[in-house]
Simulated scan of single mutants.
Amino acid sequence: VSVGLLDYPVLQAADILLYEPDLVPVGEDQKQHIELTRDIAVRLNHQYGSEETPVLKVPEPLIKADGARVMSLTDGTNKMSKSDPAEMSRIELSDPPETIIKKIKRAKTDPTRGLEFDNPERPECNNLLTLYMLLSGQSKAAVADECREMGWGQFKPLLAETAVEALAPIQSKYMALLRDRTYLEAVLTAGNAKAAAIANSTLAKVKAALGFSQPLGSKE
């Protein structure tokens, strides 16, 4: 095992703990990383802090009840990922409407008529219904009732239209921000200053708790 592979989870934990979050939004498959992060914080607090004055804040994972793990359009058993070499496997937030429609039209399905959630024999069906539920803002029960008797020829255009409509305001805002470079740079500068202040404070607390001496002339 390489040092990089061994140390990377600890580096991920440090990136979280450094900024003292209360909640960390993650997908279902990332929950284990938050559990490790919590274990590290709890252990450090136990050894070097106290219940009244913990050294590190112990964060909680924030995982959506529905849609915590969106699956690939080409394989309902694999997670949708930007690192997947197959572009047809995912919907990019910046995809134009015609691309979104094309990807959904070609999404993998099954020959069974009638759509249903939570059938382990129909992972693609569950995935596409979940996408429709999330993008339309409807409840799971409402989607199940609406789509129960549908075939794919009827459902896919509905999903594509819903996806295009749901992403339109996001894409509009995205393009507006890209055109306003001054605003973007100001946000980045302010965010960097805010993050640095929190990080420096956390680092100073950890160093003090562990007994690291500060260099002469240090302001930390």
Rank of each mutant, 00 (worst) to 15 (best):
K57S: 09
L115V: 07
P97W: 01
Q171S: 10
E92F: 14
L18R: 08
L18C: 09
E92H: 13
V164F: 07
I63G: 08
E87T: 15
A13Y: 04
P96A: 03
D22T: 14
D145V: 11
K82Q: 11
K108E: 12
S94D: 14
N200Q: 15
L36P: 00
D39E: 08
E116T: 13
L6I: 15
E116F: 08
K194F: 11
C125P: 04
N127L: 07
A160I: 02
S72G: 05
P111N: 04
T189K: 15
R122H: 11
V24H: 00
E116D: 11
T37R: 06
S2P: 14
A176W: 10
C125H: 09
R113A: 14
A163I: 00
S72T: 03
V3I: 14
Q32M: 08
G137W: 00
R148F: 12
V55P: 03
A86P: 03
S139M: 06
Y174R: 14
A13H: 01
A65N: 10
K105V: 03
I63L: 01
P9K: 02
Q47M: 12
K108M: 14
D110S: 08
G153E: 08
E165N: 10
E35D: 13
A41W: 01
K205C: 05
A197Q: 14
A144K: 03
L5G: 10
R113F: 15
V3R: 13
S172W: 12
S81N: 04
S213H: 13
N78G: 11
E92P: 04
P96I: 11
A163H: 00
V70W: 01
S172L: 15
L158N: 04
R43C: 09
G191R: 05
G191F: 07
K57C: 07
K156N: 00
E92Y: 15
L93N: 09
T182H: 12
M150E: 05
Y132V: 00
L44Y: 04
D75F: 08
P21N: 00
D145G: 09
L210A: 07
A204G: 05
R148Y: 03
T109N: 10
L17Q: 08
N78Y: 08
Q47L: 15
